[in-house]
Design a protein around this nucleic acid. Sequence first.
RNA 1: UGGGGAAUAGUGUAACGGCAGCACGAGUGACUCUGAAUCACUUAGUCUAGGUUCAAAUCCUAGUUCCCCAACCA
Length: 575
Amino acid sequence: MPTTDPPRSLNFIEQIIENDNTSGKHDGRVHTRFPPEPNGYLHIGHAKSFCLNFGLAEKYGGKCNLRFDDTNPTKEEEEYVESIQEDVRWLGFDWEDRLLFASDYFEQMYEFAVELVKQGKAYVCDLDAEQTREFRGSLTAPGKDSPYRDRTVEENLDLFTRMRKGEFPDGSRTLRAKIDMASPNVNLRDPVVYRILHATHHRTADAWCIYPMYDWAHGLEDSIERITHSICTLEFENHRPLYDWFLDQLGVYHPQQIEFARLNLTYTVMSKRKLLRLVEQGHVDGWDDPRLPTIGGLRRRGYTPETIREFCDRIGVNKFNSTVEIALLEHCVRADLNKRSPRVMGVLRPLKVVIDNYPEDQIEQLDAVNNPEDPDAGTRQVPFTRELYIERDDFMEDPPKKFFRLTPGREVRLRYAYFVTCVDVVKDEATGEVVELHCTYDPATRGGDSPDGRKVKATIHWVSATQSIPAEIRLYDHLFTKEFPEEAEEGEDFMANLNPASLERLTDCRVEPSLAGAEPGARYQLERQGYFCVDPDSTSESLVLNRTASLRDTWAKIQKAQQNKPKQKQPRRKK
RNA sequence: UGGGGAAUAGUGUAACGGCAGCACGAGUGACUCUGAAUCACUUAGUCUAGGUUCAAAUCCUAGUUCCCCAACCA
């Protein structure tokens, strides 16, 4: 039987491409590009864009360029060029020999500008920035022609040449396209094409003192690279007429600009400006803080490239703004990590347990399954001893209904080990806090099964008190307390919605000895807790784990529901 | 008072004149040596009002709401 997967429906960009391919518009070629400006770190919103661009090229047997749109030397730095490449590569994309820079086309762009001047379609304007703005008019009122609009071609050529030579100070003149100062689209009101900027560029150094504007540069970059589909975000929709106008005047190869909606995620922020503020004001610990939606942050958090690609695939592509629930990202990472993570046991908040009837100095090695989702992952041994730690949350002295774990007098299973029964609770006399538990074990249940068929309601994890190793574990929660962090009270902004509990450091954790020497980046599932990865802060003597995602927690939901309607339960307090 | 876009369950997306479907979320149950995973079931939608048509999410008209645009940023 031919199992034909139902073909995934095409998004609107794929539809355009397939139409172009059948009509032969670009001779069936598909050539896209990811054109970041090297002025910041990449985040998952960028991942949506480059997964789209590289993915389309992959799907249609085409190519995708990595092109740095480095036309503004005052904002751009080599550091970002490096980190952007690292991130795109980490996601698994290959630009082969097409690592490109807009700055490599500066000479060609200049010559095209000279051509535009010669055609009488561009002029040197002496208005300063403020005057230019005034002359542009408003959204509802037309602009006024610049007094320099009608200079002769010869004069424009001379002035433009001298602009390049560096004869004029910054801001004193611009080259402007001569289009229409009354256009209802303000982008067409004689847009600036070149500005004077005596700044050192990270690649061309001081070779230039005039730099092209985005609208002029971008279409030319696409044209020079013979891009077929130039995919950008929605806010450039208004710029498309200008993109088209420049290429039409020049009569050069003309790619098609297509706009799609950028990604928004709940409980986080995505703009470079806001992320920068979080980093600079120290609310997070650098650009790769695991709470950030940056690629570096997600990597450090323990996300895999496959997770991010799967997520970008699932969210779709459209032309209207939407906000994806972060729960979908979390679902993707759990699904991925569930399949691939080795399981280990670790106790986040240790509670000491003494097995009274277990021999004092005995150490048993018990077999544990490495990954029930992957039979090839095999088994390992975990040491069992008389003194153990279990999770504090796995014991309650006075449990509510539906609490299945350890309580006084109740028998539970220690995973892969024995059935144990709690026989005594030791408390701190001053505070009343439970500090130690005494249990007995049933030697017949070694390995976790009872020969008499006795059942227990719960299986809890544990580590040996003497054979486990210490670890620091960092628990992360949403960076903001609100789904839409921008929704702030009058006079406040998104910073007011920062989650004060977005990071919790647990320094007294204990993990099973198989984790000794784990390398940064290694990923594990701590059973019944979540997915974790080894942080680069780890050293050979101190292990640091980041929680990538918790496991789904039905018990937590039950607890929450019980707390939310405590009506009938109140009177049980008494003694 | 201008111009450009866009509206489908709580969220994200399909359906391209012919049974409104999928995923996430939420809920219920089964199973379970992870209260995980897995499995089953449930929940809930075409912005509004007209019109065309045997038939409209889809076409037409009018309206409503939301987003973007007045850097020598990208």
